[in-house]
Simulated assay, not measured.
Amino acid sequence: MYDVAIIGAGPAGASAAIFTAKAGKKTLVVDHDKGMTKKAWFENYYGITEISGPELVETGIKQFQRLGADLVEEEATEIKTNGDGTFTITTSENKQFDAKHVILSTGVALALAEQLGVITKPGTEPRIKTVLQVDEQGRTNIDGVWAAGTAAGVSVHAIITAGDGGKVAINVISELNGERYVDHDIYQPNS
Rank of each mutant, 00 (worst) to 15 (best):
M1Y: 11
M1V: 14
D3L: 03
I7M: 05
I7Y: 06
A9C: 12
A9F: 04
G10V: 11
G10K: 10
P11T: 11
A12C: 08
G13I: 08
A17V: 11
I18N: 00
I18S: 04
F19P: 00
T20G: 07
T20Q: 05
T20V: 04
A21C: 03
A23F: 06
A23I: 00
G24Q: 03
K25P: 00
K25Y: 00
K25I: 02
L28D: 06
L28C: 06
L28F: 08
V29T: 06
V30A: 04
D31I: 01
D31H: 01
D31S: 00
K34H: 10
M36F: 14
T37G: 10
T37W: 09
K39W: 12
A40S: 14
W41D: 08
F42H: 13
F42P: 01
Y46T: 13
G47P: 06
I48D: 01
I48L: 13
I48G: 01
T49H: 10
E50F: 03
S52W: 04
S52K: 11
G53W: 09
P54G: 03
E55A: 14
L56P: 04
V57Q: 03
E58S: 10
T59Q: 10
G60P: 09
G60A: 09
I61P: 00
Q63S: 07
Q63N: 13
Q65W: 00
Q65T: 14
G68H: 02
G68M: 06
D70Y: 05
V72F: 00
V72W: 01
E73F: 04
E74C: 00
T77K: 12
E78Q: 14
K80T: 15
N82T: 10
N82K: 13
D84Q: 08
T86M: 09
F87G: 02
E93A: 15
E93M: 11
E93S: 14
E93F: 05
K95G: 13
Q96Y: 01
K100F: 02
K100Q: 14
H101S: 03
V102I: 15
V102P: 00
I103R: 04
I103C: 05
I103G: 05
S105A: 15
T106M: 09
T106R: 10
V108C: 03
A109I: 08
L112C: 07
A113C: 02
A113D: 06
A113H: 03
E114T: 14
Q115T: 12
Q115D: 14
L116Q: 01
G117H: 05
T120S: 14
E125V: 10
P126W: 01
R127D: 04
R127N: 06
V131S: 02
L132Q: 04
V134Q: 08
V134T: 15
V134W: 08
V134I: 15
E136L: 13
E136P: 07
Q137C: 05
G138R: 09
R139G: 04
I142G: 08
W146D: 02
A152L: 09
S155E: 13
A158K: 07
I160Y: 07
I160C: 01
T161H: 02
G163E: 07
V168E: 06
I173W: 02
I173Y: 01
I173L: 12
S174N: 09
L176V: 05
V182D: 09
D185H: 14
Q188V: 15
P189D: 08
N190K: 15
